[in-house]
Write a protein that binds this DNA or RNA. Structure first.
Lengths: 241, 241
DNA sequence: ACATTTGGTGACAAAGTTTGGCACCATTTC
DNA sequence: GAAATGGTGCCAAACTTTGTCACCAAATGT
């Protein structure tokens, strides 16, 4: 029997039976006492918390707190999860968000380092504030998930972004801008960009943007975006260590 | 060099360089052509999508879509992530939430089955609605993450829950109730519970609850909770497949 | 047409890793 | 003190992985 399969079998058995002895495990998975002892050691090295007690009535026990799971996630999925937690924190509805954060930290750690760099660069652009109560949000629409790839590329490569924008009155314009930051005023999301045609910053509501296209070319320069006082960079949020 | 480390090295190299040849990889990681070919095969079996082309200018290429990551998460962390995404959807600020969802589906799949059962049972209790605009949320406070363990136990074991509640006027009362559902009216979270003393349902704002304690004993019975029309069970949300 | 560059497969012996058996130690409980 | 348990070191046997080599298939350049 393969070593990985055996490790899985041991973990499953410990989860099912709560507690067991080395000899019982050996009989169950069809390996020797010595091998099981080695496996237990390896599992502990992998991060499983396994208690053991000598003597009559003793045995090994898997700490239920350490019940863990492996999942293969695409970078885009990790990204989406991170933004979800950011949005949640933005809304200041924070139950359990520290736990979500610690889960994300682990996921982040497992990402390839170049992707982590990208992720951090994107998160540096993310800002969080609170919506003023008088803002009208009756016409809010779900944001098209198809926006993500173009936005990601535009932010990371510093490419210009062209899109169609529908303003509050429903009038449509075409824009070509330099994406500088994302602003979350939950439940609204804004793209904060430098509009070279107007030589000024503009806020664009994400749910009014459509047909985004990145324009490849010389990367634009990053600018200091003037934010209101109560807007906070995502990476400076209190519990994000 | 260890086989796992070599696999990691190959994936990293392909990610970094975009495309490469078998011979280049062999030189880079210090293994033979044959071994690299075997490794590529193994990686494909593991789920990596690796394109290959024969002939001059050919080579192997890791499909960037298939860039994946493994992470070990505790169940509580998965739980917190799930709730984050739920909250995000509740706020209807939905950019990228389908991606977050698909990430979570993978994580859920990797969980031990008994935990998935627990998770589903808890999610069955989760309901999502929209806050009426006239509701005053100026005094909202972050919710104490220490509430989670008691709530989880109370919901899963159907134990009574005792806590201190501070009402809108600041008056404190002690309650002992049967937790029936969680209601998210983002950014507010409510516990919907049956109050045996008053023989009726009560809504408790999570940020006004403190010192929760589960009371072990006979599990209470689940009741049908009367919700407003626009409140939707989390598991029935459109894109949660 | 043919040489060259590339991925891919099968076979087999050499190199390396894992396993089981054994002797032995430490701790706890009866 | 005997029995039941976890834990360690050692070594040869069993098993897996690796490199070499011969060879095939597909694409591309001359």
């Amino acid at each position: 029997m393969n070593i990985r399969l055996r490790h899985d079998a041991i973990v499953r058995s410990l989860r099912r039976n709560g507690t067991s002895t080395i000899d019982a495990l050996a009989a169950e998975v069809g390996a020797s006492r010595r091998t099981i002892l080695r496996d237990i050691g390896a599992l502990r090295d992998e991060g499983f918390v396994i208690h053991s007690e000598s003597g009559r009535g003793g045995g090994v026990q898997l700490d239920p707190q350490s019940v863990q799971t492996k999942a293969r996630l695409s970078v885009a999925e990790v990204f989406a999860l991170l933004i979800s937690v950011a949005a949640m924190r933005a809304a200041q509805s924070l139950p359990f968000s520290d736990l979500a954060d610690s889960g994300l930290a682990k996921i982040e750690k497992a990402l390839p380092s170049d992707k982590v760099r990208d992720l951090r660069r994107f998160l540096d652009c993310l800002h969080i504030g609170r919506l003023s109560p008088q803002q009208d949000i009756s016409d809010i629409k779900p944001i098209d998930p198809a926006l993500l790839p173009a936005f990601e590329t535009a932010f990371l490569q510093r490419f210009h972004l062209r899109f169609e924008y529908r303003d509050a009155k429903g009038a449509k314009t075409n824009r070509e801008v330099e994406p500088q930051a994302m602003l979350i005023l939950s439940p609204l999301w804004y793209l904060v960009a430098w509009d070279p045609a107007r030589e000024d910053f503009r806020h664009f509501r994400m749910d009014r943007i459509s047909k985004p296209v990145t324009i490849e070319g010389a990367p634009f320069r990053q600018r200091h975006v003037p934010f209101e006082n109560d807007v906070c960079p995502f990476n400076d949020l209190p519990s994000r260590k």
